[in-house]
Amino acid sequence: MSMVRTANAQYQPLGKNGQGQVSLGSGVMSEQPYGFNTRFDDKPGTNPEELIAAAHASCYAMALSFALAEAGYERGKVNVDAAVTLEKDGDGFSVTQSALVLNAKVDGMDEKEFETVANDAKDNCPISKLLNAEVTLEYSFQS
């Protein structure tokens, strides 16, 4: 089974003075502004790290929920925060961490079993895997 989800990002003019818009293929987010000021100056809009944090938090919450249900637990709640860190790296920047913070309540489960399931879900959540994935690029160019 294979699923493809899409997004589109535009940015112009080039450099720090540029502004972009990002949209999700589902339409749930459309033409959301982003740029240097939304990434580094906390201006209204989004940025790539915030979008990665949302993806990681939601993916992990779902992966853990499914793993808990598979382990036989039906009643509970998970709440996940993710903080993605962007740091200066030479002449550019690198995403250096995605820190997940989990608050969970699972009826009838002991903490040792929970820790095992929670860590396994962290390691096997698709977005956790993505953060170490191969990146490919196809392009067309006009001058």
Results as ranks from 00 to 15, higher is better:
Met1Val: 09
Met1Ile: 09
Val4Cys: 08
Arg5Lys: 14
Arg5Asp: 05
Thr6Pro: 00
Asn8Cys: 09
Asn8Glu: 14
Asn8Ser: 13
Tyr11Val: 00
Gln12Cys: 04
Gln12Trp: 04
Gln12Lys: 11
Pro13Asn: 06
Leu14Ser: 14
Lys16Leu: 11
Asn17Cys: 10
Gly18Asp: 04
Gln19Pro: 02
Gln19Asp: 08
Gln21Cys: 11
Val22Trp: 10
Gly25His: 01
Gly25Trp: 00
Ser26Pro: 11
Ser26Asp: 14
Gly27Glu: 03
Ser30Asn: 14
Glu31Gln: 14
Glu31Ser: 12
Gln32His: 07
Tyr34Trp: 15
Gly35Ser: 06
Phe36Lys: 08
Asn37Met: 13
Arg39Gln: 07
Phe40Met: 08
Asp41His: 12
Pro44His: 06
Gly45Ser: 03
Gly45Trp: 03
Gly45His: 03
Thr46Met: 02
Thr46His: 04
Thr46Asp: 01
Pro48Arg: 09
Pro48Cys: 05
Glu49Thr: 11
Glu50Arg: 11
Glu50Phe: 12
Leu51Lys: 04
Leu51Pro: 02
Ile52Tyr: 13
Ala54Pro: 06
Ala54Asn: 11
Ala55Met: 08
Ala55Val: 10
His56Pro: 08
His56Arg: 07
His56Asn: 08
Ala57Pro: 07
Cys59Asn: 09
Cys59Trp: 09
Met62Asn: 12
Met62Gly: 08
Ala63Leu: 04
Phe66Glu: 13
Phe66Gly: 13
Phe66Pro: 07
Ala67Met: 15
Ala71Glu: 07
Glu74Trp: 03
Gly76Arg: 05
Val78Arg: 00
Asn79Met: 07
Val80Trp: 02
Asp81Val: 06
Ala82Met: 00
Ala83Ser: 10
Ala83Gln: 11
Val84Met: 04
Val84Leu: 02
Thr85Met: 06
Leu86Trp: 06
Lys88Trp: 05
Gly90Tyr: 06
Gly90Pro: 05
Gly92Ala: 00
Val95Pro: 10
Gln97Val: 05
Gln97Cys: 09
Ala99Thr: 13
Ala99Arg: 15
Leu100Trp: 07
Leu100Asp: 02
Leu100Met: 06
Val101Leu: 13
Val101Glu: 13
Asn103His: 15
Val106Lys: 00
Val106Thr: 02
Asp107Glu: 15
Met109Phe: 02
Met109Ile: 15
Asp110Tyr: 07
Lys112Val: 15
Lys112Gln: 14
Glu113Asp: 10
Phe114Lys: 02
Phe114Val: 02
Glu115Val: 10
Glu115Tyr: 05
Thr116His: 12
Ala118Ser: 12
Asn119Lys: 14
Ala121Pro: 05
Ala121Ile: 03
Lys122Val: 12
Asp123Phe: 03
Asn124Phe: 07
Pro126Val: 05
Ile127Gln: 00
Ser128Gln: 02
Leu130Cys: 04
Leu130Tyr: 03
Ala133Ile: 05
Ala133Asn: 04
Glu134Ala: 07
Glu134Asn: 07
Glu134Tyr: 03
Val135Gly: 00
Leu137Phe: 09
Glu138Pro: 08
Glu138Cys: 08
Ser140Phe: 09
Phe141Ser: 14
Ser143Arg: 12
